[in-house]
Each structure stands twice: as C-alpha cells, then as structure tokens.
Design a protein around this nucleic acid. Sequence first.
DNA 1: AATCTTGCCAACCGCGTCTTA
DNA 2: ATAAGACGCGGTTGGCAAGAT
Length: 335
Amino acid sequence: MFSVERVLAQSLEMGHRCCSKQKIKRGLWSPEEDEKLLRYINTHGHKSWSSVPKYAGLQRCGKSCRLRWINYLRPDLKRGSFTAEEEQIIIDIHRILGNRWAQIAKHLPGRTDNEVKNFWNSCIKKKLISQGLDPQTHNLLSSHRRSSASTISNMHKKSNPIFIMSSHTTNAPVETTFQTFSSLPKPPLNIVQTPSSIITSEYQTSPIISNNISSDLPYELLIDNGSNICSPSYMNPTAVELSNNENIADWVSRVNVDDFSGQTLEEGTQVQVQQEKDKICEDTVTDVREANKGNLERSASFESSNFDFGLLESVLSSEFISHDLSCMDELAWNF
DNA sequence: AATCTTGCCAACCGCGTCTTA
DNA sequence: ATAAGACGCGGTTGGCAAGAT
C-alpha cells in the first residue's frame, strides 16, 4: 500500500542512472503523479515515452512512466488474484515458452508480464516444487525420478512396439502445429510418462513416428524396444517438454537456418524461417489453450476411443512397481 | 510486546532489439 | 551503413505487511 512517509523519503532521493541529466524522482508513485500521468496519456496518448514526463509535468523518466502505465494505470488491467484457469494457462504456456513473461501475459487479458512473473515466483513455482516438478523444466525433480525411471527401464525390455496409442481429439489446432514443424528439423521427441504429463527427452535419431497407420487414428504414440520412445509432440500438446532444460521456444530458437535440408538459405528465406519459428511457438501455445479448453471433452473422447491414459498409467505402474530397478535409474535417465 | 522471518509486489536495472536520423 | 536514442523484456531489489517466535 501507498505510504506517505516512504514516498516523501524517496522523493528526496533524486537522480536516475538512465536520466542523469535531470533531477528524476524514483520509488513509489504518489496519487498526484498517477493523476498527472493518467490525464496526460488520456489526452495525448504515449507516442514517445521519453517526452511524456516533460509534457505531463512529472519528475520521472520516460521509462518509469511507461512502466507505471503498463503495470498500474492502463484501463484494461484486471485486478485481483489469479483464477485457477489463469494459473493453468500460465503453467502450460511456461512449459512451452519458459520465462517469456511478456509472451505469457499476452494470453492473459488484463494481466501484465510483471504480474505474471511475480505470481509465478511467489506461488506457482512453489506449487510445482511441492508436486516434485522442476519449475524451470516441468520435468520431475531428481528426487522424484526413481519411480519414473523404473517405468522407462522396463519399457526397454518390451518388444517393438509396446504401445500404440491414438486419439481422435483436437485435430485442427494440433495439425496446424505439426504442419509448421514439418519444414523444420525434427525436435527432440522421446517421452516418458509422468503423472501429469508426457515429457519428452533426448533427440529422436531415427524417427518412427507414423501418421498414417489408420486414417481414423490421427495421432499415435509408439514406444519401441529400446533406443526410441517417441511421440509426435502434437499428440498431447499440453505435455510437450524437451530435454536438457529446454522448452519449445528454446529449441526453436536453437534451430539453425542452415539445418534446413543441409543447405544455406538466402536472406529472404531466413526471414521466413524466423517467422516460421515464431509461428511454431505461437501455434503451440494456441494448441495448449485449445487442449485445456477441451480437457473434459477429451477425457470423454479418450474413453470412447482406444486411447486410455488411465490404462497406460495402471499398466506402467502395476507391472513395473515390483521390480527393483535402482541400478537402471541412471541409465534410464541418461539414454 | 518486541523482534525476526517470510511472502508479496511495485519498481528499478541492465541489456538486447528496434527505430530513426 | 551507422550511431544514438527509444523501447521492451527479464532478472533483481527493496520495502511493506502479516505471521511466527
């Protein structure tokens, strides 16, 4: 809350590193300053932030004015605590984009990047840790990996393939994503099953993704007998996670344009590639949101199709839980 | 009651990118 | 083509308030 003493004290502390020429006030904004800024922007807009303080009669730097407007004075800001739905959106998009708060905030009308960032750091982060998930990667924390590692170890003993899963769900947005991916090198696509998600790991060296086993089964998850446990990333877009602390956005940014068909691209094409990278991130986020919206619907759909996460989980846990596979853990997590 | 700790959040800082002259 | 200024972003800090000791 606003503190008069604090503002008075801070108003004495003049000067600002980015605006060393003038006497610039720092610290909390007073109601009078808010009023001045609000009135000025409502009348004149904010074409140039650097000139706003001068014309608005504020002893602040333009940067500070901009921040105050964006984070507090903007009329379209939503007040109050985050809803469960917003929280889920943040988690899902963060899983894909990482700490790109501005990008995440764009999907939450009325919320600012600062707000999202603070909410993440103060609430969501702790929640994920308490669930045994690394808040940066959304992977299981090492202390929680043993059970999952056992699962993977046993998958390797299976003949090829041990699972074929499919679903009839959420075709449209998902396909958009994969079509976009199609001109890029394949992302890392191996997976492990966790209670809440499918997490990918390792680079898929010999793609065995099939998209045409049956036209009725648009998405398949194939797990082979050892080196490749792979899944089209689009099968469960809410669960995409890449290896080595990497998310989709990192992976996409890492992709070198020269990777395209092994040839160097011309400048114009490189721009297109950059646009394509951006689109991948955007489409993936869209998919996540669509998938979240359809969660209930999808559950029902899975029941009627032959995709059954419940069955998968029970098979994995019941068959593997009795084995002592501690010696396989490191192997499993480092393959 | 006093002190310490923790959580939260507004604001700042520095750096990278974009724009403009 | 380039340099300077503006802007935007993510990380970090500082201070208040509430809870714990």
